[in-house]
Design a protein around this nucleic acid. Structure first.
Length: 844
RNA sequence: GCGGCCGUGGCGGAACUGGUAGACGCGCAACGUUGAGGUCGUUGUAGGAGUUAUUCCUGUGGAAGUUCGAGUCUUCUCGGCCGCACCA
């Protein structure tokens, strides 16, 4: 037996586990725990990010399994989406084939990591079974009024020829294609996520086990702010314009009304050629160039009456007021708003200060702060008040005069779910020849995707299909056209965690009983890149499902863990081309590589997220083949805390392998795996052996605590300390066997195959993976002696070893006796600080 | 611009509620063992001083503060990373 080919050992144990189905057994008498990692998109191969994500999840799942929990740890595939369609076009095959082939390969890869997954619960969102149930949910949402259709400007991706949600547009470009996004008006399906804005915002505070960072990002995304809506009369008409502001107290400084080009008022100017050009330009700027803050202005020749001063101020259209926020109209107060200030300066609007900053304020005009010492000026009844009080007063006045009301607005928009693509879930809707929109009956599901599809033509493939969309209304027999849009894939991933509770049920999306047994997901682990979209949509789904009378919790994920990226060093040659790190020759802080037989100097870049473009990717498959999954797992877990980025290094992986090999060689002879050790035997141990026994108890305690708290790196450090001690000390056979068996049980959640192999070689005939977690004997956790720090004036002056819980009097006595510590008489000191078992500080 | 996170050896990182800074590992160095290989073992490894010892001084981006005591708390400042971005 040796450890030169871990892959062979690992295959063997993976098969054994699978044959005995040890990861698909459930025991209802135990407490449940649902551990889930974000399911992968089947791109074809797993990458280091997957390896890290699934290793973390697996360590946790194994930990709870061994700690007497009823664990659910399933896996599935987020298998609808654009890449399948693109790959199908390139390789002239069907997206379904491509996807299924990828799933097969990735499943094999995932299995080679040795994950404790119940593959019996495997789901795939592109399967008919899954999307049938999804259509079911769509119909329920339709009935509950959560899904609706409306015309709207959409983000149009000219390359993918599809619509994107706001959050799928990054810096003005499509999140997948990278193409510049255009605004286009289309009829689209929407989910009413805005019905839940307040809940989604307020309930964030209850998510105590979510990272603050994610909660902050969601808060900012939802972007709730309280303010006032004020009505301005358009001069010489009966029409009004409502504006939204959070600074109503600055109303006396208003010098214009600025209105979005998409505001209703723009309808009046439809015939105006100049305006149409202006509007076009604004829309283009808004959707594209992110750094362009150029403010455009279109004078309307209309005026509005300031309800407090009676003054007429000009109404203008501009690109810097957005239709999607507030009312799409504002009053401009240039003296106290940076944007209004910029705009006013450019177009010569009056700039009237209405708040006087405190004398010590660094801010000049525009003064935008709200400070205690600031006071209102030029504002009639508000003069001399501080802005906060002025605000309260003016709000009251506005309400009294019935010209406006307090209002809370949000940045959140309804979620557009229509996609003009083939490889997605068909929407179960038909358009009847009499013009009616008809939702299908549940017994008409699933609406299947046709397999004979031509993806080569631009536009929507389902719409292009010769026959698919032609159908008849079941009730009336009238001709009808199917909805040819498919659902956004974020729809698929918004409820998959519920489907895992009853993955085989072909009648309903999920079973209430099973959902109440398993939900919520106790630990949800995945990348930070889903902090907003996927997580917010999932939170919304649960609320929407509740409203559609499903029995689900409103928060799907109890604890959220966002793991960092896997990074690797980067190199560039002098022409700026990236060079693979493994080709680099390192010589004393200089870097070279062989090019055409000669050595060329390289520039070392910073460590970056592994990506093909930077040529710094490492294929997990190769690592597993060379060093084994256990080595890869241990390295992934031990080098840095899960939420931080992980620096990949060849040295690190090699050292990890060497470590496992060393332990393996050490234990392969003369070791017997045992589960327990009798109290009788402990009594006969020597003092030295008791010390080791104590260390083992302490290790169990601290390691367990670290794992529970996701401090895997320190957990591994403690384990290494433990094995270092064990290797250096000669122990009686019983104790040696015991201590190393503890070690194996502890590390088995990280390196399961390794442990099974050693244990079985050492006479154990069950699975270490199925053993209970080691129980520590608390009697041996207590330390008899402690080292206490002796300080004078807060500086360390020495250490004394004393019995634990020694009191101050006794300690001073001991210190007096120790000649090396120059503290003789306690009355010399002003004060003595004593912290039991920790420090004593003499203050002169 | 707004919001958040983070600055600790050559590197990744420890230090839980303020109480021995640098655990564990990488790298490096010395010695030993091997003598065709992804070695192995032992020891050392924050910097400086030194009478070489169970020694002293300085050290957690910088400045100040609170405290008997600060990597940890407070304020300012510099640097890095991430998110949002004309959100009224």
């Amino acid at each position: 037996m040796d450890y030169s080919k871990p892959e062979i050992i690992e295959k063997k144990w993976q098969l054994e586990w699978e044959n005995k189905k040890i990861y698909s057994q459930y025991q209802k008498n135990k407490e449940k725990i649902y551990i889930l990692e974000m399911f992968p998109y089947p791109s074809g191969k797993i990458h280091m990010g997957h390896l890290r994500n699934y290793t973390i999840g697996d360590v946790v799942a194994r930990f709870y399994r061994n700690n007497n929990f009823n664990v659910m740890h399933p896996m599935g595939w987020d298998s609808f989406g654009m890449p399948a369609e693109n790959a199908a076009i390139e390789n002239n095959l069907n997206p379904k084939e491509w996807t299924e082939k990828n799933i097969e390969n990735m499943k094999k890869q995932l299995k080679s990591i040795g994950l404790s997954i119940d593959w019996g619960k495997e789901i795939s969102t592109c399967s008919e079974e899954y999307y049938k149930q999804q259509q079911n949910l769509f119909l329920d949402f339709y009935k509950a009024g959560i899904v609706y259709k409306k015309d709207s400007y959409v983000n149009w991706d000219p390359e993918d020829k599809t619509v994107l949600a706001n959050e799928q547009v990054i810096d003005g470009r499509g999140w997948r294609s990278g193409a510049l996004i255009e605004k286009k008006k289309l009829s689209q399906w929407f989910l009413k996520i805005t019905d839940f804005t307040k809940e989604l915002f307020d309930d964030l505070k209850n998510l105590s086990e979510w990272p603050e960072k994610v909660k902050t990002m969601q808060k900012n995304w939802i972007g709730i702010s309280r303010g006032v809506e004020i009505r301005f009369k358009i001069t010489n008409t009966t029409d009004c314009i409502n504006v939204f502001t959070t600074r109503p107290e600055t109303i006396f400084g208003a010098s214009f009304l600025a209105i979005s080009v998409e505001h209703n008022l723009a309808d009046l100017f439809e015939q105006n050629e100049e305006f149409r050009i202006f509007k076009e330009k604004c829309l283009k700027l808004q959707s594209q160039e992110i750094d362009n803050n150029e403010k455009l202005c279109f004078f309307t020749n209309l005026f509005a009456e300031n309800p407090f001063t009676g003054e007429d101020v000009p109404i203008v259209f501009t690109n810097y007021v957005l239709i999607g926020y507030g009312t799409g109209a504002i009053f401009g107060c240039p003296a106290h708003d940076k944007r209004d200030f910029e705009f006013a300066k450019k177009y010569n609007f009056k700039i009237l200060p209405v708040i006087e900053p405190p004398l010590d304020s660094k801010q000049k005009i525009p003064y935008v702060d709200i400070e205690e010492k600031a006071k209102l000026i030029n504002s009639y009844f508000l003069d001399d008040l501080n802005p906060k009080i002025a605000q309260e007063k003016i709000v009251k006045k506005i309400e009294e005069k019935k010209i406006g009301k307090v209002k809370t607005v949000s940045k959140l928009r309804d979620w557009g779910i229509s996609r003009q693509r083939y490889w997605g879930c068909p929407i179960p809707i038909i358009y009847r020849e009499d013009g009616k929109i008809i939702a299908l009956e549940k017994d008409e599901l699933p609406v299947r995707l046709p397999e004979d599809i031509d993806l080569s033509k631009p536009g929507n493939p389902l719409d292009n299909h010769p026959t698919w969309k032609y159908t008849k209304c079941k009730k009336t027999g009238m001709n009808a056209l199917r909805e040819t849009d498919t659902l956004d894939t974020f729809f698929d991933s918004s409820w998959y965690y519920l489907r895992f509770c009853s993955p085989k049920n072909d009648k309903i999306p999920f079973d209430n009983k099973n959902v109440s047994d398993w939900m919520p997901v106790d630990h949800y682990i995945g990348g930070i890149e889903h902090a907003i979209l996927h997580l917010l949509y999932s939170r919304f789904f649960c609320r929407a499902l509740k409203k559609s009378s499903y029995n689900v919790p409103s928060e799907p994920f109890k604890k959220l863990v966002t793991q960092g990226m896997v990074c690797h060093e980067t190199f560039k040659d002098n022409s700026g081309k990236w060079v693979e790190p493994h080709k680099v020759i390192k010589k004393e802080n200089e870097y070279f590589y062989k090019k055409n037989g000669s050595l060329e100097v390289l520039i070392r870049g910073r460590s970056e997220k592994m990506s093909k473009s930077k040529k710094n990717v490492i294929d997990p498959d190769i690592i597993i083949k060379e060093f084994g999954a256990d080595t890869a797992r241990l390295f992934m877990i031990s080098d840095s805390p899960p939420e931080r980025d992980l620096e990949w290094s060849v040295e690190g992986i090699k050292a990890t392998y060497k470590y496992l090999k060393k332990i393996f060689d050490f234990l392969k002879n003369d070791f017997t795996f045992i589960i327990e050790i009798s109290n009788e035997k402990i009594k006969n141990f020597s003092e030295e052996e008791i010390k080791i026994f104590k260390i083992s108890q302490k290790t169990i305690f601290e390691y367990t605590d670290d794992i529970k708290n996701y401090r895997f790196n320190t957990a591994v450090a403690k384990l290494r300390e433990y094995s270092n001690v064990l290797q250096k000390t000669s122990l009686n056979k019983t104790l040696k066997n015991y201590c190393w068996s503890i070690y194996l049980k502890l590390i088995s959640i990280i390196t399961p195959h390794f442990c099974e192999e050693i244990a079985s070689h050492s006479g154990f005939n069950k699975f270490v993976s199925e053993l209970d977690w080691p129980v520590m004997n608390k009697d041996y956790l207590k330390e008899e002696n402690v080292k206490m720090v002796v300080m004078v004036n807060g500086k360390k002056r020495g250490l004394v070893e004393v019995l634990s819980n020694t009191d101050q009097e006794k300690l001073i006595e001991i210190i007096d006796k120790e000649k090396n510590i120059f503290v003789s008489k306690k009355d010399k000191f002003k004060k003595i600080i004593f912290v039991k078992n920790k420090i004593i500080n003499f203050v002169k």
